[in-house]
C-alpha cells in the first residue's frame, strides 16, 4: 500500500517537473523572438550608438581609464533608468495586441510575460554592455588593473536596466490607459532620480540635530538609483564623491558589508516588482 502511494506521488512529482520544464521551454521561445524583434529595432541601435559614442568621447578626453569610469558612472545612473522605464512602457503598450494573440496560444501566461520581459531587458542590457565594452577594449581595459571596477560598472548598468524594466512592466499592467502609464513611468523616474535626493537633503538639513545615520541607510535602500550610486562609489572607493548617504553607508557597514547589503537590496528591487507583476497577470483580464 505504502509503495503504491509512493508510486503515485513520484509520478505526480515527475509530472510537475515535466510541466515546469515545458514552461521554461515556451518562455525561452518567446524570449528568443522578442529578442530578435528588438535587436532589429532602430531605438535599440540608437541606444547602443549613444553609449559607444559617449564612452569613446570620455575615454578620449580623459585619457585615463579610472577617471573615465567615474564619469561614466554618472552617465549610466542618469540615462539607464529613464530609457529602460520609458522603453519598457512603450514596448508593453505596443505589443499589447500581440500579447493577446500569444495568450490565446496553448502556453501559460507566465511564459509569455517572462519571455518578453527577458527579451526586452536583455536586449537593452546587451546594447549597453556592447556600447561600453568596445571602446574600453580599444583603450586596453583587459590588460588594465581597472578591469574589476569596469566590471562592477557593467554589473550596475545591467541591474538598473532590469529594475527599471520590471518597474515599467508593473506600471503598464496596472494601467490599461497608455497615457496614464507613460505619465506614471515618468513620475517614478523623476521621483527616484531627482526629487528623492532633494527631499532627502532637505530632510537631513532640517533634522540635523538628531542622529540620522540608520534612517539615512533605510532611505537609501528605498531608492534603487541611490543604491546603485552608493555601490559603485564603494567599489571605486572615491569617498569624496560619496555624498552623505554613501559616507554613512561606508562608515556603518564597511566596504564589504556595504557592498553585500547594497547588492542584495538591488536584487530585491528587481524581484519585488517582477513578482507583483506575475501575481497580477494571474488574475488579469486581457
Amino acid at each position: 500500500m505504502s509503495l503504491f502511494v509512493r508510486g503515485i506521488k513520484g509520478e505526480e512529482i515527475n509530472k510537475t517537473i515535466l510541466n515546469y520544464s515545458f514552461n521554461i521551454k515556451c518562455m525561452l521561445k518567446i524570449f528568443k523572438y522578442s529578442f530578435y524583434d528588438l535587436l532589429r529595432s532602430r531605438w535599440l541601435l540608437m541606444y547602443f550608438l549613444f553609449f559607444l559614442a559617449t564612452t569613446f568621447a570620455l575615454l578620449y578626453l580623459s585619457s585615463d581609464i579610472s577617471k573615465g569610469i567615474v564619469s561614466l558612472m554618472n552617465i549610466i545612473i542618469a540615462i539607464i533608468p529613464v530609457i529602460s522605464i520609458i522603453f519598457g512602457v512603450m514596448y508593453y503598450y505596443n505589443s499589447r495586441e500581440f500579447i493577446d494573440l500569444l495568450l490565446s496560444q496553448p502556453i501559460k501566461r507566465k511564459s509569455v510575460f517572462l519571455g518578453q520581459f527577458l527579451g526586452l531587458s536583455l536586449s537593452l542590457a546587451l546594447s549597453f554592455v556592447l556600447g561600453m565594452i568596445i571602446p574600453f577594449a580599444v583603450y586596453g581595459i583587459f590588460t588594465s588593473s581597472e578591469i574589476w571596477n569596469f566590471s562592477s560598472l557593467l554589473f550596475i548598468g545591467v541591474i538598473l536596466t532590469l529594475i527599471f524594466v520590471s518597474l515599467a512592466y508593473l506600471i503598464s499592467i496596472l494601467n490599461d490607459d497608455k497615457i496614464k502609464g507613460f505619465g506614471i513611468a515618468i513620475l517614478v523616474w523623476i521621483l527616484f532620480s531627482v526629487i528623492y535626493d532633494g527631499a532627502l537633503l532637505l530632510f537631513f538639513v532640517s533634522f540635523s540635530d538628531y542622529p540620522l545615520q540608520k534612517f539615512a541607510i533605510v532611505l537609501t535602500v528605498l531608492n534603487p538609483v541611490d543604491l546603485a550610486r552608493v555601490m559603485v562609489l564603494l567599489k571605486l572607493d572615491v569617498s569624496a564623491l560619496m555624498g552623505y548617504t554613501g559616507a554613512v553607508f561606508n562608515q556603518f557597514f564597511g566596504t564589504t558589508w556595504g557592498m553585500f547589503i547594497s547588492s542584495f537590496s538591488l536584487l530585491l528591487w528587481i524581484f519585488i516588482p517582477l513578482f507583483s507583476f506575475l501575481r497580477i497577470i494571474k488574475k488579469k483580464d486581457f
Binding site: S41, E97, F98, L101, S104
Partner: peptide, 15 residues
Amino acid sequence: EIGYLPQITKLPENI
C-alpha cells in the same frame, strides 16, 4: 485545439 482570429491585431514590427 483552437484557432483564433482577433479583432485587428498589431504584430511585432521588425520580424
